[in-house]
Computed example of a mutant assay.
Amino acid sequence: MTESAARASIAIVTYPDVQMSAVLGLGDLFTIANRNSRQSGGGVLSVTEVSGRATDDTDGEPFAAVILPPTLKKSRGRNEKTIHEWLRAQHAGGALMCSVCAGAFWLGHSGLLKGRPVTTHWLLEDEFRTAFPDTQVNAEHLLIDDNDIVTAGGLMAWLDMGLFIVNRWLGPQVVSDTARHLLIDPSGREQRNYRSFRPPLTHGDSVILALQHWLEGHVDNEVTVKAMAGRAHLSDRTFLRRFKAATGLTPNTYVQNLRIEKARGLLERTRIPVSAIGWNVGYQDPSAFSRVFRAATGLTAGEYRNRFGVVARGAVTHGLPS
């Protein structure tokens, strides 16, 4: 919903180790949006960089929105009590609280995310769940709007957050004009379009690790739990327990994730027909492959290839026609 305002005040928090490219990029995005808005007689966004170590300098009326950008380092804000108190005060005063990527940790440690749906970078999902078990983490989404709290995942998701802010206060036409200026898509992306399956390999269970290595080259086989347990020389029950303990996944879920990851690679690097790719990664039913791939990535296999493929159209690979 667009909120009309002659001037909406936006705070970008420059906490310790903040990603300055995001801070400056957001400033530039809002500058371009303001220029486009003024041309049509609209309002503007007034942007302030608020130092995480000097939040007491901003006493007074709360901001319309507060943004916590990403960080490229390990900062999580756990002990930044001054910032936590300031964030809670801003929220209590009516500010829209926003985070990008690891910035969600700062909101979490402020106590503002309890029971809330939230997203962050998919690589940080497990760390975030451990730190804040009372949140509803949905890392497949690039942006989650929960009314007074908005979170975005991914280092570059500050673009999505910036356009969200622009839409909320300046309207969809300014979003369109700004996105066109920056040559970016204004909407429609999801984090699951980009995430990769990175199975844990440092769990210390050599038997399960050997099976994982074997699976890497045999996803096209009809791999059953019984077959995997037999290869690991374990009973079905013991195998299921040890596999879940080592990888965090059931064997069937693990194999499905591995197959989809292999399919992504073939779609990106080759022109093998989609039906053949499904067969190559273990799906004998093309419709089943299509359903599973779309559920995992948010895209059809053809859409994924069009967006991420790096092989020229018309190329022939592995002896198969394009």
Results as ranks from 00 to 15, higher is better:
34 N>H: 03
34 N>C: 02
65 A>F: 08
42 G>H: 13
64 A>C: 09
64 A>H: 12
36 N>F: 00
57 D>N: 09
51 S>D: 15
46 S>W: 05
47 V>H: 01
58 T>M: 08
59 D>W: 06
53 R>A: 15
64 A>Y: 01
27 G>V: 01
29 L>S: 00
53 R>G: 10
25 G>Y: 01
44 V>A: 07
52 G>V: 11
57 D>Q: 12
57 D>Y: 12
37 S>H: 03
39 Q>K: 14
54 A>S: 13
35 R>K: 08
50 V>N: 00
43 G>L: 13
59 D>H: 09
32 I>P: 00
28 D>W: 05
42 G>M: 07
45 L>C: 07
59 D>F: 14
52 G>A: 12
60 G>F: 08
29 L>C: 03
66 V>D: 06
30 F>W: 14
47 V>M: 04
35 R>M: 07
61 E>Y: 02
27 G>P: 01
64 A>G: 09
43 G>T: 14
48 T>M: 01
34 N>P: 06
58 T>S: 04
58 T>Y: 15
47 V>A: 01
65 A>P: 11
42 G>D: 13
25 G>S: 05
26 L>G: 04
63 F>W: 04
46 S>Y: 07
40 S>D: 15
44 V>S: 08
57 D>P: 00
59 D>Y: 07
55 T>Y: 08
59 D>P: 02
57 D>W: 13
38 R>G: 03
66 V>A: 05
26 L>N: 06
50 V>F: 03
35 R>S: 06
53 R>D: 15
44 V>L: 08
48 T>V: 06
27 G>K: 02
31 T>M: 06
38 R>N: 06
27 G>Q: 06
54 A>D: 14
27 G>Y: 00
49 E>R: 03
42 G>C: 08
43 G>Y: 10
34 N>I: 00
37 S>Q: 04
41 G>P: 14
33 A>L: 05
31 T>I: 04
49 E>G: 03
63 F>A: 05
30 F>H: 10
39 Q>A: 10
61 E>V: 05
37 S>D: 03
43 G>F: 11
48 T>D: 11
48 T>C: 00
30 F>C: 02
29 L>Q: 01
40 S>N: 14
50 V>C: 07
35 R>H: 11
44 V>D: 04
41 G>L: 14
48 T>H: 09
55 T>S: 15
66 V>P: 07
65 A>H: 11
46 S>N: 13
35 R>I: 04
47 V>R: 01
45 L>G: 03
45 L>M: 11
65 A>Q: 13
54 A>T: 10
43 G>I: 14
